[in-house]
Amino acid sequence: MIHEPRRAESHGAGGADAGRRFGDGGLNLKPSGRQHVSESLEGGSPVGEVSVADAVFSCRDVSVFYGDKQALKSVTIDVARRQVLAAIGPSGCGKSTFLRCLNRMNDTIPGARVTGTITLDGRDIYSKRQDVAQLRARIGMVFQKPNPFPKSIYDNVAYGPRIHRLARTRADLDDIVFTSLQRAGLWDEVKDRLSSLAIGLSGGQQQRLCIARALAVQPEVILMDEPCSALDPIATAHVEDLIEQLRASYAIVIVTHSMQQAARVSQRTAYFYMGQLIEVGDTDRVFTNPQHRLTEDYITGRFG
């Protein structure tokens, strides 16, 4: 409701600068009064460009149930290669649930059920023949809170390569650890204390360590669930830079509560609301010209 007066004000000011005063941090909104493509919640299919030419993941009609409760409702969306997809939406709308479908992490929750199809490079990841551990090895995951294992920095990064036997010799392993820490932008800070416990690192360092740990398995996709929510602005900037670099070689899906962050790091944005995918499209387009009433309400802060 805070936004109502500002909205009126910017209307009153009129003219060319209305848009600029309205949008924070480069979010430029179309003046109101335009026609929305959609206003309804019970539309079924989302607004925007669901499919992409070069899809890593293709989700079709994906629903997730936790017991009787449906947390994700018939979501259809593609994740493109070498691109960052941001998933935004209010708390409890199913962003994490969506993310955890992609590497079958929901399998670890008793009572969770997934319907619909998700393919990775054209292969159904929920098929009976799919080896779940192998699937997850192809998909890196970074969590909201930095959660290094209670082991040394080195052992944290080496954990994945060890269980998958990616390194034949100690030198190979050293090399993987070095490369992963380097890519995560952490090498210079920890190179002198690789054998000390990871818990001794700062929060931001721990999070980059978790990213290094995920990279060490040489995944094809990286899933990030609010990776910066426990970090200060400097550490956040570090991680965002890192995402920008990783984008060259990985498909990345990031859940974030910060719309500024979504705008900064992603090329596509998906807006979820109450378990439904409401709108998806190029980040610039979604933020400057949302087609669905609910999307606009959310990104202008009039959500509620």
Binding site: Q134, R138, F143, F149, G160
Partner: peptide, 18 residues
């Protein structure tokens, strides 16, 4: 043992035993 810790193990492709 925090779930997130186990999940990061699973996330790296570890089997239940691992």
């Amino acid at each position: 043992v925090p779930d997130v810790l186990k999940e990061s193990g699973y996330g790296l492709g570890a089997t239940t035993w691992e």
